[in-house]
Amino acid sequence: MTERPRKSTRAVNRRSAPGVVAHGEGPVTRAVVLDAALEIIDRDGVDGLSMRRLAEAVGRDPMVIYRHVPNKAAVLDGVAEIVFAELSVDTTGTDWAAGLRELARDFRRLALEHPRVVPLLVTRPLATPLGSRPRAVVRPLEDILELLTRAGFSGADALHIYRALFGFLYGHVLNELQEIVERPEETDEVLRLGLYRLPIDEFPRVRELAPVLAAYDGEQELERGLDILLTGLTATLPGPAR
């Protein structure tokens, strides 16, 4: 499959925007603070983020940071917000399945660009009532509902499709990011994955699938999973395809 050109991220655009200068230069805004937080998490993970380190990254006294984000939880919510803001859905598209597939590819791209932010994307929105979430976090839901109802699905079925899609995407990116090869230099798949530690009489199926497990390809897994998901949705839900 040909990889389509990667989109420029909004984080990059913010860094190049006039007036967005860290290290004590220029105005401090919420966008500047969240951009610095995203950089820290990308580099050091969520555990590496503190309000003190964030203030140092922005080049200001911590009290300046608190004017824009009241606490670390708000910073984490904001980081999830600015990454979710990268997702877009063409609500006027005539091929709903193609639109969802494009969204899924974008979500995976963002996850690979910001792997240490993925736990926030999966968990932070769920910790907040739907109506209290940032608009950028709710926007994909609204746009997918619009796309699917325009295509002829009922509102309830459109919501089922949204939940199935994002349930799959969350699981996929977490699984892909956790695929660890123990010995990359090995050509034997059992040794490569460390499966020799599993007794063959207890885990015969896993051992048998060693070549398939070792040949894991995140992009192909995403496309295959979408094939299964979208085909099943088309077959089971009353909508335009039926």
Rank of each mutant, 00 (worst) to 15 (best):
A97V: 01
D61L: 00
S16H: 09
V83A: 06
E81M: 04
I41H: 05
T29G: 08
M51K: 02
L112W: 14
G93R: 15
R60W: 11
E56P: 00
A74H: 02
D77T: 15
L103A: 08
A31T: 08
D44G: 00
M51H: 06
D47Q: 13
A98K: 03
A80N: 12
A98D: 12
D35S: 14
S16N: 12
R105C: 06
A98C: 03
D47I: 01
I41Q: 05
M63F: 09
L87P: 13
A31I: 01
R53Q: 10
A85T: 01
F107Y: 15
V58H: 07
R67E: 13
E81A: 14
K72F: 07
R60P: 07
L103C: 05
R43G: 05
D77C: 06
L54Y: 10
V20S: 09
G93I: 02
D77P: 00
P70C: 01
R30C: 03
V58R: 10
D90E: 13
T29Y: 08
G78T: 06
L103G: 08
L34A: 04
V58I: 11
L34Y: 05
L34F: 06
P62A: 10
V21S: 14
I40G: 07
E39P: 00
E25R: 13
T91C: 02
T29F: 05
E113Y: 05
R52F: 09
P115G: 09
E113F: 05
L76Q: 07
V58S: 12
G45H: 13
G59P: 08
H68D: 05
F107K: 03
T94F: 02
M63I: 11
V58M: 11
V69D: 04
D44L: 10
G26H: 07
V89P: 04
G24Y: 07
I65E: 08
G45S: 10
G93D: 15
V46C: 08
L87N: 09
E25V: 14
G99Y: 02
A36V: 07
A55M: 13
L76T: 08
R15H: 13
M63Q: 14
G48Q: 14
A17T: 04
V32T: 11
G99L: 01
M51V: 12
R109A: 14
G99E: 11
R14C: 06
A74K: 04
V33P: 10
R67N: 12
R109D: 15
H114N: 14
R30G: 09
V58L: 12
V28I: 13
D42F: 00
D47V: 01
M63R: 13
